[in-house]
Computed example of a mutant assay.
Amino acid sequence: MDSENSWVTSAGGPLILIPESVCYQWAAAPCTYPDNEGDYGRACEVDGYVGLIDVGGAQSLVLGDMPARTTFLPRHNVLVREIAGGEDDAGLSDLVANLIPRVEWETGPTWTVSEPVILFDSLPIHRDRHGGTPAHRPPNGRVRDRGGVHRNLQ
């Protein structure tokens, strides 16, 4: 496994990117789950590859569709979600550089961010998360999010 990539995995639900200053407000799935789905239920309601929900008064980005291990590649300023594949990600950055021009991009929401965000599994509360990583230091302001898929590596 390429030591440059820090992958975040899911226990089965969506991953979420939350501004650092409000991560502590993420309540995830409460002890009364599934009767009360809490923040986790709101994240699960996102339809498609990406969607926005409010956490502590800040916009947070939910990576919907399906749980998939995810990493941030700062060289390309992209999140990469592995839908199928193995644990070997040697050369991933070069592969992504070659694929970006051929990805079938879908327009997504515009996300307003002004600070670093943390990527983690939406199921546990933030302080109990495993595998969370500072994933993204976006420019201040509005970020246009696009979901994309490349279906054939040949």
Rank of each mutant, 00 (worst) to 15 (best):
55 V>Q: 12
154 Q>I: 00
117 V>Y: 12
87 E>N: 15
117 V>N: 09
112 T>Q: 12
41 G>Y: 04
101 P>E: 12
132 G>Q: 15
61 L>K: 15
115 E>V: 02
122 S>N: 08
66 M>L: 00
54 D>L: 03
41 G>P: 08
16 I>Y: 06
26 W>F: 06
100 I>D: 02
16 I>E: 01
24 Y>L: 11
62 V>W: 08
129 R>W: 01
94 D>Q: 07
17 L>I: 00
136 H>E: 01
146 R>N: 12
9 T>H: 06
79 L>F: 14
127 R>Y: 08
53 I>D: 09
25 Q>P: 00
126 H>S: 14
130 H>G: 01
82 E>Q: 11
45 E>T: 10
2 D>F: 00
6 S>R: 10
32 T>Q: 09
114 S>D: 15
43 A>D: 00
37 E>F: 03
135 A>T: 06
47 D>N: 13
129 R>M: 03
69 R>D: 08
73 L>W: 03
10 S>Y: 00
25 Q>T: 03
121 D>S: 08
84 A>H: 10
52 L>W: 02
63 L>D: 10
97 A>E: 15
115 E>I: 07
136 H>R: 13
115 E>A: 04
56 G>E: 11
7 W>N: 09
135 A>Q: 09
49 Y>L: 10
14 P>Q: 04
115 E>Q: 08
38 G>H: 08
35 D>W: 07
75 R>H: 09
22 V>E: 10
19 P>N: 14
61 L>F: 11
139 P>M: 13
4 E>Y: 09
